[in-house]
């Protein structure tokens, strides 16, 4: 496998996981724009556990637990207490940025030395198995949404929460479950970044990937399978930066830093969004 394709896959996987999680939540009718913060928390926990001597697999699991807690916390605020999810998400980003920086400073002290963790070993396809499995996540979600009773309920919570409630089911419970799942996937996405391509922690290490994942969901029109090509596209665009650092094109490096954001913006402009969005997206639970 050539270097570029490998890097592109490694960079697509975190985006894909985070976007898949966000899609679950948005299909249930809520929205977490603090996905960047959740990814950051996942990245930090994976780093901290890895520094503690645990295996990369254990770090991944620890990040998933942290993500679960983050998702439930979001559900407490934005679903159960019905605070505006946009505001909760904005503040969550701020909190996650501050808290991970605080914790990192405590762990690393004032030393400027780079602290690295062990990365996931390569697996069957030349990339770590967890990364390969990430590409199955949208497929699983697609089948789950279409084929299972729980999947239909989740969709109902996003399309017609009143109807779900009239069946005697709790919209709050469904959306909270979705928030928990999205927290786990978002944190796993952040952790995977640390455990594959950038095995150290710096403040804001996720570099806006959570925001890109948000755009991916809109771009994919809330359809899980459409996340695959979209994430691969943005992952490849991001990979150009790494390619460039190794020396190459004459274009300024920062252009490639800006490129994922520009591509996502262009995609949104072309997609002319509202079509395909869950009808009750961002609504308060009845």
């Amino acid at each position: 496998m050539t270097g570029f394709v490998e890097i592109a896959l490694l960079l697509s996987a975190p985006l894909l996981l985070a976007a898949t999680g966000e899609l679950v939540l948005e299909r249930a009718g809520s929205i977490q724009i603090g996905l960047e913060g959740t990814m950051l928390v996942g990245a930090y926990v994976a780093f901290a556990v890895g520094r503690g001597g645990s295996s990369p697999e254990a770090s991944l699991a620890a990040a998933a637990v942290a993500g679960l807690l983050a998702g439930l916390l979001f559900a407490l605020f934005a679903v159960a207490r019905r605070a505006d999810p946009i505001l909760v998400g904005t503040v969550w980003n701020l909190l996650a940025l501050g808290a991970t920086a605080f914790a990192y400073r405590l762990a690393a002290g004032e030393t400027g030395s780079v602290l690295e963790v062990r990365t996931l070993p390569r697996g069957l396809f030349g990339i770590p198995d967890a990364v390969a499995a990430s590409f199955l996540a949208p497929v699983v979600l697609h089948l789950w949404l279409a084929r299972t009773r729980a999947g239909l309920r989740l969709t109902a919570a996003g399309e017609n929460p009143e109807a779900l409630r009239s069946l005697g089911l709790s919209v709050v419970a469904v959306r909270s479950g979705a928030a928990a799942a999205s927290g786990v996937l978002g944190a796993l996405g952040g952790a995977m970044l640390i455990l594959t391509v950038s095995p150290t922690f710096v403040e804001g290490v996720t570099a806006g990937r959570g925001f890109l994942a948000l755009a991916l969901v809109v771009f994919a029109r809330w359809k899980p399978l459409a996340l695959l090509p979209a994430a691969l596209l943005l992952g490849s665009v991001t990979a150009l930066q790494y390619r460039l650092q190794a020396g190459g094109f004459g274009l300024p490096y920062a252009f490639f830093l800006a490129l994922p954001g520009l591509v996502a913006l262009a995609a949104l402009a072309l997609a002319s969004t509202r079509g395909g969005a869950p009808k009750a997206l961002g609504s308060t639970a009845p």
Binding site: L214, A254, L257, L268
Partner: peptide, 29 residues
């Protein structure tokens, strides 16, 4: 994007933040 293409400002401004951060990186170098 908001008025002509119905793109929610929450999304577009977040992405424009990323572009601005990259812009600063480029300008100072």
């Amino acid at each position: 994007l908001a008025e002509k293409r119905q793109v929610p400002p929450v999304l577009s401004t977040i992405l424009l933040n990323l572009v601005a951060v990259a812009g600063v990186t480029w300008l100072v170098r």
